[in-house]
Design a protein around this nucleic acid. Structure first.
Lengths: 205, 205, 205, 205
DNA sequence: CATGAATGAGTGTTCATTCAT
DNA sequence: AATGAATGAACACTCATTCAT
């Protein structure tokens, strides 16, 4: 049988400004659909329509539907990354508890801006694990670097690797939990303060 | 036909032993498919085939596809619940650090049994938020109850609500992180011990 | 990245009588569409509709659209095969010119039954070459066998391989040409008789 | 948009040398795509890309996709025509068997140059029948004219119409068959000589 | 009850064609 | 003239669901 060799097709890379805007429009459309009707409301044609582009254009930028989801997750991850990095660099020279507070506060700010989104993003939009995993490690790096200068205040045997592991995971859960799962009877501010204290204690060992 | 207007229909309650086994077979089939080909590989027909039942039988036990996912998540949650409760009751009368260790150890045991599963379950299988949320609160309750007897060792002002919030979330993340995201250069045992110390510190304030 | 292994899906084999009828209905639908609007009028949904089955059923029997075309060609080939074999076996014991006449007559009968079809079949319906090639060889075999008993009447040096090659190809073209491209001023009967004489001459060397 | 109602539009006639080259480039691109991936690999955009022109230019020269196929077939037919006519004119004054040999040899030369192409051209590229039919008649005319001078050597009752019908069809099949379907155990030269003898016999009646 | 053939709405995706630049 | 980004109608194909047996 004659081999039916699939001939690849050029996919545009969104390097141009306008192209970037189009991609953003499409990702926003996904978010809008997600909120309106859950994962099952997301179809490629609806993404195009909601995003104000033609379905053809969608496939100019993404090879398939899944790639759109990946891009959406990546955009979210990039935002988290950005916030974390900024908060870290802003806290250089400050004492450890200021850093911890700043990180938690950054996460809250991020998730509080759109509380629904973060939840939907990882409950409804399928996301291959590797991306998340990789991101997790990158965060871990950031945190380890950030903890470096505070070695003294972490006691004689800092074990930075362990400390940053603890810090990264606590910032992650509590960043989410404070916004989404805060138990009744606790104000956000109060809970935040308690969490910061807990993190400090956990870091100091 | 993809029915949109739902006509209610009596669905068999799996009270019989055999029925239970059938349901289990189907849920296991979902897991198997999930591991083999990700979320997109899960179709009702394949669930039936893989589970060794007819597609008709699937609809005898579940009103629609989503219900299968819900059941799967519920089964998983039930397992976590069971482990947590057992560990708590086993630690009654023991000091707090024994409880904490037991909880973390339980979570590790749970996730280490099938490390892939837990990840896939909440990265690929869509799960309506309410169930998770509800589960989260229930866990919180368990933890608060469990912490009750340890009020003294938590200092003069225990704020049990806050402590259990901290405990629940830390057990949750680290239970996952120790199995999936443990940084290189740390043995499971070593990391576990560090995490327990961190939790203890966070609890004591 | 997680391997998204495509999980195959069971395709029904049309062994049952009813299934056979369904397949026939679908192939007939293709022919009908082909005559009505050429190749571009053939869509899988139209095949289903015209054939009186659901599109889902089409895919129960064929993995994809191309497979339908292949089946159509195979059906046609099978018919030619049947006619050729019958004519050959009917001519056993008869002189060579009776065999030649019978073969040409069979082909005419076949193509005259639906003159449009044969043309459309190989001008509009894409057909992978290998099938045709294989068929061609099989026919060649039949013809060689058929010529065996006539070795004497082919002169002292029959070279059966060459003779059957000549016969097969002449039966093929003239079978088509007599129906489709017969030059003006020639009756079918007259032309047929001339062609038979020509074939006989070509066979005798 | 797939325009259905055709609005007539001036199409550039490729009179210029450069224009001719562009058209050739596009037709060559079709052939290249055809060989690489069969009929389904031929898309207008790929033709443009492979041919090194813009898709816009393709539509400057062809009203639609089908027109490209027609042009491709016409180009092929023109080549066959050219070869046949040249061989005929070269054989003027020569005996009939020289003419027959020259024709067969011309066809072999033509098809052997690109054995794949001829097959693909009429197995995969849809070709409306009329063109082929018309071409067939034109060939027939050529052959009749060519046979005229050989009336004597065809016996007392030449029936040129029938002879040229026989000749045209035999040249056609064997031209293809010798290249594509020659049975094992036959050299091209040997088979060619046998075929020429067979044609001569068929012509002489 | 269990089965699995049949259904067809709806999906992801392609690709012929246009037209502003 | 030439370009190629953009379009969207239409396509091939899937799969949740039903229901006659």
């Amino acid at each position: 049988m004659r081999k039916v060799t699939k001939i690849p097709f050029r996919r545009r890379k969104p390097t141009q400004v306008r192209a970037q805007a189009t991609v953003e429009a499409m990702l926003d459309a996904v978010v809008r659909l997600l909120k309106r009707g859950g994962a099952s409301a997301i179809t490629t044609n609806r993404i195009a329509e909601t995003g104000g582009v033609s379905i053809g254009s969608v496939y100019q930028y993404f090879p398939d539907k899944r790639a759109i989801f990946v891009a959406l997750h990546e955009r979210h991850i990039r935002e988290v990354d950005r916030v974390i990095q900024r908060r870290i660099s802003e806290s250089i020279g400050e004492p450890l508890d200021r850093l911890v507070f700043s990180l938690i506060d950054g996460m809250i700010e991020l998730h509080a801006a759109d509380p629904e989104l973060a939840v939907l993003l990882d409950s409804e939009v399928p996301h291959r694990v590797d991306g998340t995993r990789e991101f997790s490690f990158r965060l871990h790096e950031h945190f380890r670097t950030a903890l470096g200068p505070h070695a003294m205040s972490l006691g004689g045997n800092p074990k930075l690797n362990v400390r940053s592991f603890v810090l990264a995971n606590m910032v992650d859960v509590f960043g989410h939990a404070l916004v989404q799962r805060r138990p009744s009877g606790l104000s956000l501010r109060g809970a935040r303060s308690e969490v910061c204290k807990a993190i400090m204690a956990a870091l100091r060992c």
